[in-house]
């Protein structure tokens, strides 16, 4: 498979890259190239120009500052996997990176590329939805921030304008009592998801869910936020059924028919499934995929709760 002819540009600075994008017709931005190059080789994409931002300095850092984890445009999946801060504080990101393609592809593939491609089958978008990330697009008029909920417009379509580059993803730093998990069902290593669920939960001191984020992969034309499922979880208290609190709770469940943890989680997971709009393909039927959204959401909620419980203030 041979790519069609195109012109290649390797700007040495962000300004130069933006100038090129402004000047060139039919230009496509490339970072790691692991999504774009296969499309070129299949001749599904035939841009006249490729602007390779791989040599632009300053875009390859991951840092936690100002209340955000900032992931630059050139940060690879491997770099994310190897980052100590991510491993300690953002296990959901590690979950996500580790199930993308295979280790060799991840050596070149970038997180921003995964998001900017606008492919609902890609894994990071769901996680970014769960984490309520902000996308920073840089264009001829400078930077603008786009909330994740405004970013994905449909199949391969995002809020990025021609001439803009997704230069950074900003993820709000998690609170002390928070945890998240991403689970993906795949037919084999390297496959796109049959379904994927990202859940991120923030709890208060008492252990009540103050904010829930749930994103779903490959279950519709765009990555999906399961808002109704988030609402089911928000304000609820899970676990800790010992002592007086547990006793009260059991009494309340019995008398006032307060749903149990499992019932709540099942209700949230069903709400997540109801938010999907999958198509039948070789990965399964619509029914199967909806149910997998439910099953994976349940499992991801449990894992997120576990992680939130394990994250003691001392552990930061």
């Amino acid at each position: 498979m041979i790519p069609p002819p195109f012109d290649y540009h390797a700007p040495g600075s962000l300004e130069e890259a933006l100038t090129l994008l402004g000047r060139l017709d039919d230009a496509k931005v490339m970072s790691g190239g692991q999504s774009l190059l296969p499309m070129l080789k299949l001749r599904l994409a035939t841009p006249a120009n490729i602007v390779d931002i791989g040599r632009v300095p300053g875009l390859d850092s991951i840092s936690e500052e100002g209340g955000y984890l900032r992931i630059g445009a050139l940060v690879t999946e491997t770099a994310l996997e190897e980052n100590a801060t991510v491993a300690a504080r953002y296990p959901i990101l590690l979950d996500t990176a580790k199930v993308i393609a295979d280790p060799l592809v991840r050596n070149r593939a970038t997180i921003c590329g995964n998001v900017a491609h606008g492919d609902p089958a890609n894994d990071h978008p769901a996680t970014m939805i769960a984490l309520r990330a902000t996308m920073v697009a840089t264009g001829p008029d400078g930077e603008r921030s786009i909330g994740v909920d405004d970013f994905f417009h449909g199949l391969f379509m995002t809020a990025l304008q021609p001439g803009e580059i997704l230069t950074e993803i900003r993820i709000p730093s998690p609170g002390q009592h928070s945890g998240g998990a991403y689970l993906k069902l795949e037919r084999k290593v390297g496959d796109y998801a049959v379904a994927g669920a990202a859940v991120h939960l923030t709890l208060d001191e008492e252990g009540t869910v103050t904010q829930a984020g749930i994103g779903l992969t490959n279950l519709g034309m765009a990555p999906i936020r399961a808002s109704a499922a988030e609402e089911v979880l928000t304000g609820q208290h899970f676990g800790d059924h010992s002592g007086l609190r547990g006793a009260f709770r059991r009494v309340r469940e019995a008398i006032a028919r307060t749903p149990s943890d499992d019932e709540l989680i099942a209700a949230a997971s069903q709400a997540a499934a109801d938010a999907t709009d999958p198509v039948a393909d070789r990965r399964g039927s619509v029914d199967y995929k909806r149910n997998m959204a439910r099953v994976l959401t349940t499992r991801a909620i449990h894992k997120a709760l576990e992680r939130a419980a394990a994250r003691t203030p001392a552990g930061g």
């Binding site: 190059l37 050596n107 070149r108």
Partner: peptide, 15 residues
């Protein structure tokens, strides 16, 4: 030093 699938990298990227 990084293992890379060379069918999905342009020669110019490896300059």
């Amino acid at each position: 030093g990084v293992p890379t699938k060379s069918c999905t990298v342009l020669a110019v990227q490896a300059d």
